[in-house]
Amino acid sequence: MPGHSETHDTRPPAIDGDLTAVTERLRRITVQVHGSSGGTGSGVIWISNGLIVTNAHVARDTAAVVLPGGRAIEARGLAWDPEYDLAALALDAEGLSAADVGDSDRLRVGDLVVAVGSPFGLVGAVTAGVIHAIGPRRTAGSSFIRADLRLAPGNSGGPLADARGRVIGINAMIVGGLALAVPSNVVARFLAPLRYGAATVS
């Protein structure tokens, strides 16, 4: 129509933009981990000076870690926990982007969650879902988070984050189609005795 300019809004809907932003944020804190005993999966940069959290079944002593930029670096195991399938690795690096850690005790059933990992070698793949169930609680925060979210083996050790992009769990296994993740508060308790950058491990 002459004299009439139609305005096309080319911006993505707000929700798409948010999801993209959360994904980008998570990709910057997610590493690939190749354990010396053959395990492979993902890991989370927990502290900027090189503390990586992953699953014990991925790596628990030495491991080759591929940082988000593609740089490969050797990591050494600091501690591991068989009950929660957790391992802490240290690598010589400074100023890495580190996870913004959320409070897993405040999760509600139905909350939106996002996972990033390297399923089948596809680096930085994102999946979205919701919290499936909380508990049954033995002691506060001690049970795995269950999420209605699609995971693949390469997601092991990678982050599960809330709608703000805060890491609230470490993806650990797939049971009956559900994603099971170690709550961030359990990770914090596991890391506390290490006194690794004690100011930020709380």
């Binding site: 707000a14 139905g110 909350d111 919290i131």
Partner: peptide
């Protein structure tokens, strides 16, 4: 992150509303 957060809150509130 407002839109994503508000969807997350809506979903959790929906579960809370029906669960009883």
């Amino acid at each position: 992150m407002d839109a994503l957060l508000s969807l997350s809150n809506d979903l959790a509130a929906a579960v809370e509303r029906v669960r009883g």
